[in-house]
Amino acid sequence: MKVRIKFAKQGAMKFIGHLDVMRYFQKALRRADIDIAFSEGMSPHMIMSFAAPLGVGLTSDGEYVDIEIKTPITTAEALEKLNKVMADGMTILDFRQIEEGKASKAMSLVAAADYTVKFRKGCEPVGKKNPEDGPAGKMDWQSDISGFFARKSIVITKQTKKGESEVDIRPMIYQMSVNAGVVSMQLATGSVANLKPELVMEAYAKFKGFELPEFALEVNRREVYADLGQNGKRRLVSLNDLGTILA
């Protein structure tokens, strides 16, 4: 039986890289005594696949891992068993059955993700030393988000292996708004098109004319979606909603 686990990765857990999160889950599933299926062969490994790797330093409320289990278990029971063995900051949010077959695999379904981005304390943009810009050292960096999002194209220069290339990231920004210092955005994610929220903020900083130092942003992934739309029309459904609760 194929199962999708939704989990949150918060607090200090943001410093644990993707490969270590995989290792973490392998051990956590054993601790929780979930009867997970293994691959065949000389060195069997747990059948487990993650939706979209999250970078080190980012938190998330919408991470997904698909596994295969041999003994059925209810969603409620699995949540209890798993949350009992979690490290602080890791929370299992859901545990749902998904369809069999490769097409339902989280990794290949991922099409978009929601993010919230804010500035780390003390890292808020500092404006030009012009008193008309408001209090010294502060600037109203939020005012042009809608103007930025309203643009037809946002061309950035990307560093690639071959050198520099120009990319229009605007088509990959599905939504963008700001409220009380928190920028919300919905971005293309996955193997077809992928845009990182940090890159959007870099482009915005350039557009607005402020410096964006390294590590200035706090990024939280809110949700990851599959695109069930047809004929080029987007219809985003969260990966969780593709599963059914095990009762």
Binding site: Q10, D20, K27, V85, E218
Partner: peptide, 26 residues
Amino acid sequence: MRKLALSDEILLSVEKPARYIGNEVN
């Protein structure tokens, strides 16, 4: 949430920040 001794900036700029955050199972 537990407060860490090192800032995010430091932790994100060193190799393997997980060496310094504690919080391991058990």
